[in-house]
Amino acid sequence: MSKVGQQLYLSSSPHIHSGETTVKVMRAVLYSLVPACAVAVYFFGLSALLVLLLATVGCLATEAVCQRLMGQPVTIADGSAAITGVLLALNLPPTSPWWLTLLGAVIAIVIGKQVYGGLGSNPFNPALVARVVLLISFPVQMTTWSAPAPLGSGLDLVTTATPLGAWKNAVMLTGQAPVELQGGLTQYFLGNMPGCIGEVSALALLLGAAYLLYRRILTWHIPAAFVGSVVLLSGLFWLVNPAKYPSPVFHLLTGGLVLGAFYMATDMVTTPVSTRGMLVFGAGCGLLTVLIRLFGGYPEGVSFAILLMNAATPLIDRYLRPRTFGVQAGKG
């Protein structure tokens, strides 16, 4: 008779697990942001590094304080607050004063996340909540852009306008697109343009996103639908009046589109869970982004678009449930 000495686990199936954990998922997202952070530091120097550090430490500290105050276990080691911090920094101008960055961190964690119950419960992307609050409250600091001054170039940071801002100004003043926008599409792609810390290099962001796709943390649905709808809609306007409206490629490479489509709009907590829902979510983000960019008061609309679609997520989840196996379409 085989004897069983120690404790035996009794449970209902399954008895094995993939080994994937929330911490591993969060860590992978952080790794994927390394190239974008590195490029930002290269183009904007120590000031970008300072914003990154302040935002991350600020988010971690705020989360710890919140959880301590509420008598909950402190879970800052799960990586989610760190991600919010890094993403917030990537959504701030490189010249953000220290108090602005810290205030953003507090807003992101307190108003964006903890008031709803912490990880998994927040309806809006916490980093974007903070960015938009700051943008509305401190428009000057939030729209003071500096031209990139690559490390070792000896250049000082010089105040200038983002490509999208320059276009909007020109259209408002003359009704026409500016004759020549600073830089060019290749420079935009590499990140050599003014903008938020993380908005500048599409290349670095795509590298990180490729890693997340490979790790299956990201699925293609939201980014593809987002980018696709931006290309379609902006392409339509551009074909009708290329003298006024910028090309789809310009839309893709400038502003926060790549950052938004691959990182902000793909935040798992605040986006739909079904495949069809994700496609609708992404398409809605793209649609709103183009409309705000072309006709809104702000030159950039990515953040607003994503937050609006975050608000629509419960509705999307409710009405776009996957068709259950064995159930005919339209019957449940």
């Binding site: 094995i16 419960s121 798992m268 907590v269 869970v273």
Partner: peptide, 14 residues
């Protein structure tokens, strides 16, 4: 071999 990760909140990863 028995997986015993502590349960966390759903992050809606889908």
């Amino acid at each position: 071999d028995v997986p015993l990760h502590p349960e966390g909140p759903c992050i809606r990863c889908a």
